[in-house]
């Protein structure tokens, strides 16, 4: 396994973006924000506000023009994606279509698929944990959309890194399935205690598992705070505007519906 992988007992590491600036040509993005260790932070904001870019910067897929990315207090700005203590689940294309479930998960342990007995045990355990036992030999096309994302989560488990980045991974799933997946993420988080950065468009998702919220607007962090405050109408005005006018009513009605 590559260096810098946290052991299983290590709790999530704090993530800090220190004056990270980034430009897609015209509109510059500037991120200067802290993500608390071992918490689930929902990252929200309108389309084009830079949510995915923020995750890509943390993961190392994008190189910022200036600023630093610190994970667990260590500057990882110069590290390639595979050396960062980070796992990421994308909205799609999390799996190699020609490799089996088992192999796709196994790649989280060895990029050449040279697996030890211990690796195999970890893979089996992760598949069991994500409800995929018995589907080891299947190819991604033989799985449902939800199952594919479970495979991605199983790989997150075997990689066991202190930071998990979720880039709208459940956006294309139906509501019930999405809730199941969110619960799985919450359960995994409860066990492993990693730091989770979770990009979502759905306020219900953020409320269901999010402890903190970071709200982006126009390429900058417009507001941060506890999820409870954001969703009880005490949140910043920009967020209320994003959720929609009369958000307080809508939210409380929604909450009421869900609790029945």
């Amino acid at each position: 396994m590559p260096d810098g992988v946290a052991s299983r007992t290590e709790k999530g590491a704090p993530v800090r973006l220190d004056q990270v600036s980034f430009s897609y040509g015209e509109a510059p993005l500037v991120f200067d924000v802290d993500f608390a260790a071992a918490k689930i932070t929902a990252i929200m904001g309108p389309s084009g506000s830079g949510k995915s870019t923020l995750l890509n910067v943390v993961a190392g897929f994008e190189t910022p023009q200036s600023g630093r990315v610190l994970i667990g207090g260590v500057d990882v700005s110069a590290e390639p994606p595979s050396a960062r203590p980070v796992s990421m689940v994308f909205q799609e294309n999390n799996l190699f279509a020609h490799l089996s479930v088992e192999q796709n998960v196994g790649l989280g342990r060895s990029p050449s698929l040279l697996l030890t007995e211990a690796d195999r045990a970890a893979i089996a355990e992760a598949l069991e944990r994500t409800g995929l036992a018995g589907k080891e030999k299947r190819l991604p096309r033989e799985l449902s959309g939800g199952e594919r994302q479970r495979v991605a989560l199983a790989r997150v488990l075997v990689r066991d890194r202190p930071v998990l980045l979720l880039d709208e991974p459940f956006a294309s799933l139906g509501p019930a399935l999405r809730d199941d997946m969110l619960d799985l993420v919450a359960a995994v988080h409860a066990e492993r205690g990693m730091t989770v950065l979770f990009v979502t468009h759905q306020p219900e998702d953020a409320r269901r598992i999010g402890e903190h919220v970071v709200f982006l607007d126009n390429g900058v962090v417009a507001a941060t705070g506890k999820a409870d405050e954001f969703f009880t109408g005490a949140g910043p005005e920009v967020f209320q505007r994003y959720i929609g006018t009369g958000a307080g009513d809508a939210v409380s009605r929604d909450v009421a519906r869900k609790r029945t």
Binding site: P80, P81, S82, S87, M88, N93, N94, L107, P111
Partner: peptide
């Protein structure tokens, strides 16, 4: 991105 993340090169 998957390859970059998993260090498959």
């Amino acid at each position: 991105r998957l390859c970059a993340q998993l260090g498959i090169t």
